[in-house]
Design a protein around this nucleic acid. Structure first.
Length: 242
DNA sequence: CACGTCACGGCACAGTCGCA
DNA sequence: TGCGACTGTGCCGTGACGTG
């Protein structure tokens, strides 16, 4: 399955996860035996995708001002590569939106803006604001990185997330004047459906179902992750309940 | 171009609130 | 008063943005 490559990784370096600590740090053993500390660009609990001893890939940074020269990009779990860098989904979706990849959104927007302030006191930022010529209501797109899976079902969230709840509330507040979209970026190729992680955050699940009833659109997007790059696999089935 | 500021991610901890 | 439930804030590195 190598079609639809939409994000090529830079040359990655293989290693083995030795330790993850203080949320931002991961000690990784390279093939030479050297252990380096890489930036862990995922502050979540990384439930099920943080197993010590697992194969990982890191990317070198060309920014000399960075304290950590490497960024942890992915980990192998049950023979599946899982992307853990939360910055990647936004990059990939930006590219996908700019190139009109989503049939569901075809001809519903002409311009894509990133990180646009909105919500209470403009203190939140929506990941993408899609607009057309004046008079047409804009589309708000919020992207969530999804790494947890049970069987072949991707789950979000994997912990209580007050921020996630806040995003849902703020998107709901936009209804019915504008059409908000919650886009779940399933950062692994082995999931065919998506459901809210009720056992991790029941409030989130309740809010999500309420928002969907009121008109929130959910796009659970499947992506296959390999050390070469990320491939779009199409939409997952959305299960409102497990 | 250089620098400062801020939001983001979610946890840990401290502080506050409500109720028996 | 004692306890759990809830709220607020700092942590820390990155990167986008604004200002000079």
């Amino acid at each position: 399955m190598t079609s639809n490559l939409i994000y090529p990784y830079p040359t990655l370096i293989p290693g083995v996860l030795r330790q993850r600590y203080k949320r931002f740090f991961a000690d990784i053993e390279l093939a030479s035996g050297e252990i380096i500390t890489a930036h862990c660009p995922n502050t979540g609990p990384m439930t099920g995708v943080c197993t010590i001893g697992s194969p990982v890939y890191i990317s070198p940074s060309d920014n000399p001002k960075r304290k950590l020269a490497y960024t942890w990009e992915m980990i192998q779990v049950n023979n599946t590569w899982v992307g853990i860098n939360t910055a990647i989904p936004n990059k990939v979706i930006k590219y996908a939106l700019e190139n009109q990849w989503f049939a569901q959104l075809k001809e519903r927007y002409t311009t894509v803006r990133s990180e646009v302030p909105y919500g209470k006191d403009n203190k939140s930022r929506v990941d993408f604001l899609l607009t057309q010529n004046e008079g047409k209501s804009p589309i708000y797109v919020e992207v969530k990185n999804t790494t947890l899976c049970q069987g072949e079902i991707a789950l979000f969230p994997d912990t209580v997330t007050s921020r996630g709840q806040k995003h849902l509330r703020e998107l709901m507040a936009l209804l019915p004047d504008t059409k908000p979209i919650m886009l779940y970026f399933i950062n692994r190729g082995d999931c065919y459906s998506f459901a809210p992680g009720d056992e991790f955050d029941p409030t989130y699940g309740t809010l999500l179902r309420e928002a969907v009833k009121k008109g929130l659109e959910v796009l659970p997007c499947r992506f296959e992750v390999t050390p070469e790059g990320i491939h779009y696999l199409g939409l997952a089935e959305f299960l409102t309940k497990l």
